[in-house]
Amino acid sequence: MKLRSPSTTPAVLLAGSVCLAATLVQAVAAQPGAPAVSTLRHSPYMPVNLSQRAKNFYGLMKGVDNLSVRRTASGNLIRFSYRVTDPVAARLLGEKTATAYLYGEASHVLLEIPVMDKIGQLRQTGPLEVGQEYWMVFSNKGNPIKAGERVDVLIGSLHIDGMIVE
């Protein structure tokens, strides 16, 4: 009778225990009543909209204030509205050729403004006036962007970051 060397016995035991553990994990996961493990975690902190410093920055440098992003039409559309304080600084918002996008930070979705056959783009364009409120609507078909999610509005070189969808 030949005896095994003491160095191979722990290796065999370790390999056997790894195989047994993998088999048990697969058996538990295959059960129909097993709870599903959620990999998506939500932050326990309340979302905070733009800070006063950011609002001052957009008002002075970008020529807009009263920024808001809201879901409309049962969540199928997202409306971005703003008030113009300086038409020269905010000129990109009124240009027809500037393409506007809404980017969802959590869902990594890039939304566009829908174009209707007889109406055109669902946004206000043309010369901007001081104190007037303007809007643009983004298509959210399938509701990839939910209420409470942070979004960025991208219009040419104008970026408005970190807004919360109401």
Rank of each mutant, 00 (worst) to 15 (best):
7 S>N: 11
8 T>K: 15
9 T>W: 07
12 V>D: 12
12 V>Y: 09
13 L>E: 08
16 G>K: 06
16 G>A: 10
16 G>I: 05
17 S>T: 13
18 V>Q: 12
19 C>S: 15
21 A>S: 09
22 A>F: 12
22 A>I: 11
25 V>A: 11
25 V>D: 07
27 A>V: 00
28 V>Y: 14
29 A>G: 07
30 A>R: 02
31 Q>C: 09
34 A>F: 07
34 A>W: 06
34 A>T: 05
37 V>W: 07
38 S>G: 11
39 T>E: 05
40 L>R: 11
43 S>M: 02
43 S>L: 03
44 P>I: 01
45 Y>P: 04
47 P>D: 05
51 S>Q: 09
52 Q>R: 14
53 R>E: 15
53 R>D: 15
56 N>V: 11
56 N>M: 13
58 Y>C: 01
62 K>M: 12
64 V>S: 00
65 D>A: 13
65 D>R: 14
67 L>Q: 01
71 R>N: 13
73 A>W: 09
74 S>N: 15
75 G>F: 03
75 G>T: 01
75 G>L: 05
76 N>K: 08
77 L>K: 11
77 L>N: 10
78 I>W: 04
82 Y>I: 03
85 T>I: 13
85 T>H: 06
87 P>M: 01
88 V>Q: 15
90 A>S: 04
90 A>G: 04
92 L>S: 11
94 G>I: 03
96 K>R: 12
99 T>K: 15
101 Y>N: 00
101 Y>V: 02
102 L>R: 03
103 Y>P: 00
104 G>A: 01
104 G>P: 03
104 G>F: 02
105 E>Q: 11
106 A>C: 02
106 A>I: 11
107 S>Q: 03
